[in-house]
Simulated scan of single mutants.
Amino acid sequence: MISVIMICRNQSWNIARLIESVLQETAGFPNTQITLLDSLSTDSTVEIARRYPINILRFLPGARLTPNIGRYIGHSVSQGDYLLFLDGDMQLSRGWVEQALAVFAAQPQVAVITGATVDVPKNSDTVVEDESLLPTDPAQIPLPFIGGAGMYRRAVLDKIGTFNPWLKSEGEPELCIRIRQKGYQVIMLDRPMVYHFSDPTDKISTMIGRWRRRLYMGFGQNLRNKLGTEYFWPYFWERGYGCAPLLVLALGAATFATSLITRQAGWFLAWLGLVILVLIADALRKKSLYRMVYSLVQRTLVTAGTVRGFFITPQRPEDFPMQYEVIQQASPTADKDS
């Protein structure tokens, strides 16, 4: 049995396209459970979704919303052996579900499967795929972790734990690292999985928006949560992006203090010159001043978010308030050929 969990907020412009692609791709699988979790949309997202035979849950006004709460609740209310998580601005690709299930069946060590996310301008029409051009046996590429759309084996989540709803970000990488540490695999099928209808993401303004929504604090939260556990160093080495800049800043502070004490500016100027040379080299390597500035801003925000997140007191996932209501219930879909 498959459980599809779609998480959305104010996506009336796309929700019908997403739901129809899911219904089409799961029509041949018996007892598919399809659930939409709405994060307090103020548009007609829920009204549109109610036209379809799916379950609809909606968070209550005043509910605490985090990037992972939809996945956490989706896991808790679903019964499928495999859980497919999708965002509201996506369209599911033809044939991906069938290929993913075949891999799960043949390889019990595989716990998470994703595919290529194809970014499409937000105002684009529905993507019409030529199935003859899609690979029938796509290559399997090992990944350290995924982000966004993915299918998970329930038995593994039940064994090691599911998403942490308290995290401000970094939910999927954190979970995938735990999964891999227990000997399971995370893979990508080398073919489209979803089409992602969105605005350009490579803008500094987009990063600033993420900072304002506190979406860089998950790095620090995870480091704090994993202190003293077997997962701390694996997470630190793979996702501790904000720690290296902290060391650079600490070295700068030390050279500045040394220059003040010795009244010799050479120490601090040497540090400053080295930093400038690294930035110039980065711009030359990227062949773009903008890309260098983009990377610098990103690392700065990640570092600041890591520090802020580290001081958030860890809490148990099971203590997170589950504040939602059931808007619509639908029976699991049956196999059309049964």
Results as ranks from 00 to 15, higher is better:
210 R>G: 02
211 W>K: 12
211 W>Q: 09
212 R>C: 06
214 R>W: 01
215 L>Y: 10
216 Y>V: 09
216 Y>D: 11
216 Y>C: 08
217 M>F: 01
217 M>A: 09
217 M>S: 13
218 G>Q: 01
219 F>P: 01
219 F>D: 11
221 Q>D: 12
221 Q>A: 14
221 Q>G: 12
222 N>P: 09
222 N>Y: 03
222 N>C: 15
222 N>A: 15
223 L>K: 14
225 N>A: 15
225 N>I: 13
225 N>P: 10
226 K>T: 15
227 L>K: 06
228 G>W: 03
228 G>F: 05
229 T>I: 03
231 Y>F: 13
231 Y>H: 11
232 F>L: 04
233 W>G: 05
233 W>H: 07
234 P>K: 00
234 P>L: 00
234 P>W: 00
235 Y>G: 05
236 F>M: 15
236 F>L: 14
236 F>P: 12
236 F>R: 09
237 W>Y: 09
238 E>W: 00
238 E>C: 05
238 E>M: 00
240 G>Q: 05
241 Y>S: 10
241 Y>A: 14
241 Y>I: 08
242 G>Q: 11
242 G>A: 07
242 G>Y: 00
243 C>L: 14
243 C>D: 02
243 C>N: 04
244 A>Q: 08
244 A>G: 05
244 A>K: 07
244 A>E: 06
245 P>V: 05
245 P>N: 11
246 L>Y: 02
246 L>D: 05
246 L>G: 14
246 L>N: 10
247 L>P: 01
247 L>K: 12
249 L>E: 13
250 A>P: 07
251 L>Y: 03
251 L>G: 09
251 L>M: 06
252 G>L: 13
252 G>S: 10
252 G>W: 07
253 A>D: 08
253 A>R: 13
254 A>E: 15
254 A>G: 14
255 T>W: 13
255 T>P: 14
255 T>R: 14
256 F>G: 10
256 F>M: 09
261 I>L: 13
261 I>Y: 10
261 I>G: 01
261 I>A: 04
262 T>M: 03
262 T>R: 08
263 R>N: 15
263 R>F: 02
263 R>W: 07
264 Q>L: 02
266 G>Y: 13
266 G>H: 08
267 W>L: 02
267 W>S: 02
267 W>K: 02
269 L>M: 07
270 A>L: 11
271 W>C: 08
271 W>Q: 10
271 W>V: 12
272 L>Y: 09
273 G>Y: 06
273 G>S: 13
274 L>I: 07
274 L>V: 07
274 L>E: 03
274 L>T: 08
275 V>G: 10
275 V>Y: 12
275 V>L: 12
